[in-house]
Design a protein around this nucleic acid. Structure first.
Lengths: 108, 108
DNA sequence: AAATATTATCGTAATATTGCAATATAAAAA
DNA sequence: TTTTTATATTGCAATATTACGATAATATTT
């Protein structure tokens, strides 16, 4: 036990859960907000901004990238990171549909 | 180590992360989608629907409720669960703002 | 009151996440 | 080519999450 039963759920359910999970940490939200503010930056900038060590930030960036929430382009010896809009769109559309459906329902 | 450094981030960042984290599991997404389909239901209905034991479902419901994503009203000896729209609205608005901001940016 | 139905809690095992020091990797600069 | 700069990876300790059997709690039914 302890492992999530991923194979019992649909691909869409796993996709949404994976994206949401990547956003389920304040440090990663802070990274997204920082990227939003500065448009693009390198890992070192985030290390200077957040109260976390460089390996920790690097790991958070990796998870955000795996979830498709950010892009990372190699530029010389540094990596330029920025937000990947399309994955946020997936989430926004998903929640919009939920809200639209719920509005027509009456709760207990 | 292993504990999240919650106090180093803003209330808003922690709020969004907490909600996202609650949605970061396929079983909880499946519960939300089931509630969306049937409007309202009791815990036992979800147990019949998902490949998870009753205590596990109860725990997932607790986390969704703590995050404000669902409501649970006691009705006799059962509990009627349904989606709590306003917390989804918080997320939708948050992502909408991100997308709006990113659209005006050029990436590396 | 006893039996039943429904949900929550406890305890525990398995696994995952978080965070960082140390180190590796790779490109740029000296 | 050596040094510097920037990032990633490894390994590990602390903590959190996931899942479930056993059991408790509570209201309904008989």
């Amino acid at each position: 036990m302890g492992a999530t039963k991923t194979d019992h759920f649909t691909d869409k359910q796993n996709q949404i859960a994976t994206i949401a999970k990547a956003l389920g940490h304040p440090a990663r939200i802070a990274i997204i907000e920082y990227l939003l503010k500065v448009n693009e930056c390198i890992c070192g900038d985030i290390v200077n901004e957040l109260p976390l060590a460089q390996p920790t930030v690097s790991q958070h960036l990796k998870e955000l990238k795996n979830a498709g929430l950010i892009k990372g382009n190699i530029e010389g010896n540094s990596v330029c990171y920025c937000i990947d809009e399309k994955t946020f769109d997936v989430l926004k559309e998903y929640f919009a549909r939920i809200i639209l459906t719920v509005t027509n329902q009456k709760c207990c």
